[in-house]
Amino acid sequence: MSGNVLRYFAGGNTAKGFSHLYDSNLRGLDRVFILSGKSCLEKKILIQKLMDEWAEKDIKLEALHSPNDPDSLEGLIIRDLGFGIVDGDSPREIGKGFVGDRWETVDLDAMDLSSLGAATKKDIIQHTANRDRALDNAYQSYAEGLRVHDKWEKLYIDRMDFSKADHVSDRLILKLLSKESTRKDRTSIRRFLGAATPKGPVDFVENITSGLNKRFFLKGRAGTGKSTVLKKIVVEAEKRGYDLEIYHCGFDPDSLDMVIVRELGWAVFDSTQPHEYFPSRKGDEVIDMYELAVAPGTDELYANEIAEIERQYREQMKAGKDYLAEAKQINDQLESIYQVHMDHSRIDEIFSDIQKEIKLLAKD
């Protein structure tokens, strides 16, 4: 039942380095396995095997995709069972915010690197350094892209009517949150709406918003207050006691891109590049912050400046993507070395043990 799988990113390659929200998603889970080991591939294989086992069952799953390989998983959560499993190696730092009594680290390393030849050890060290350097270069490119983006925003901020923007926020909040929640225990979970990956920007908007009755598409140029509107919705929804899913920007993690209250059946999200969507079903509604709160003619007034800024921005985004692709290519070379020396039967044993634990949780 693929409709029971919620797909998202809990970590991202951002303009402020690698940023993650894993603890927010794992908090409250009773039984969590934190995977460790040199090979990322082995961890992905284990998590995917568990995913395949439970995907067709009548139970809700959460698939945490890898920003460095978006077709692969780096985590799986079965929230109704209080179960989670996630790649916990650097740079994720899983568990610093909270660790439960039944959280367990599982070391998947089943290879003796001391037995490797000098040339192979040298290759591992060199590949690791080259991969990390490529990732650092990606983060520097995105950081420069953010500085360019700030210039882009300023053009529109200077032409913004903030009283009109506040009016848009107030009217939307009144429409979304007309009453208090009846729930006693409020939870807020933070994730990323999308991620910068070796393939370019990737998101799961259609999956995340599946089943919701109302979707509000925030349109507008950079700096027209979309993230501010979302932050105001979060504050008000928290006051009224609703459970929240808060999705951060995969480029600038300090900004928000989406807010969901599933209890009320709605989502509000930044629907501009690189996650631009248009109304496609009943209940979809566009809110254009440029049209509603920016002085008319701003695009035309700054057409030349905007074109140059956009060129610089796209240049940095492409550089970042290329560096991420380089890092993945190098990491694939590392994996090819590790795979020769792995004891793959150990993965099968660990899978069997964890599968038994999940089945016991399902019986409770």
Rank of each mutant, 00 (worst) to 15 (best):
D166N: 11
D161W: 06
K151G: 03
E153K: 12
M160I: 09
D166S: 14
A134G: 07
S163W: 09
D132S: 09
T128G: 13
T120V: 15
R131C: 08
M111N: 06
L155V: 10
K122A: 11
H167Y: 08
S115A: 10
Q140S: 12
A119L: 13
A134Q: 02
S141D: 09
A119N: 09
M111Y: 10
R147I: 02
D170H: 11
A129E: 12
S163H: 14
A165I: 03
A119G: 05
A118N: 14
D132K: 11
M111E: 07
K164L: 15
A118K: 12
S114I: 01
R131H: 05
L155A: 04
H127G: 03
V148S: 06
S114R: 12
S163D: 10
A110Q: 13
D112P: 01
E153S: 09
K122L: 13
I157S: 04
D170Q: 14
N137K: 14
D166K: 14
R133Y: 08
I157A: 04
R159V: 00
L135C: 08
W152M: 07
D136Q: 14
D112F: 06
L116W: 07
M160C: 11
D136M: 09
F162R: 09
R147D: 08
S169A: 15
W152S: 04
A129V: 11
D150I: 11
L116V: 04
L155Y: 01
R131M: 15
F162W: 09
N137H: 11
E153H: 00
K164R: 15
V148R: 00
D123P: 02
K121F: 03
A134I: 08
D136E: 13
W152T: 01
K164I: 05
S169L: 05
Q126L: 14
A165C: 02
A138V: 08
A165R: 14
L113G: 00
I124W: 00
A110N: 12
R133D: 10
D136Y: 13
S141M: 08
D123I: 06
M160V: 03
V148F: 07
Y139K: 01
M111V: 05
D123K: 15
I125P: 00
H167D: 08
G117F: 05
Q140M: 11
G145H: 01
L146D: 07
A143S: 15
I125C: 05
I157T: 03
A165Y: 02
Y139G: 05
H149Q: 10
F162V: 09
I157W: 04
G145Q: 04
Y156Q: 01
S141C: 11
A138L: 03
L135Y: 13
D132E: 15
K154M: 11
M160A: 10
F162L: 09
L113I: 14
L116F: 03
S114H: 07
A143I: 00
S115E: 11
L146V: 05
K121D: 01
Y139S: 04
S141T: 04
H127I: 15
Q126C: 06
S169F: 07
L146Q: 04
E144Y: 05
V148P: 00
R133L: 13
N137R: 11
N137S: 15
D150E: 12
D136N: 12
T120L: 12
G117A: 07
G117K: 06
S114M: 03
D123L: 13
W152G: 02
T128P: 00
A110P: 00
A119E: 13
L116A: 05
L135K: 13
E153A: 07
I124V: 12
R133V: 06
I124A: 06
K151P: 00
R131A: 15
F162I: 08
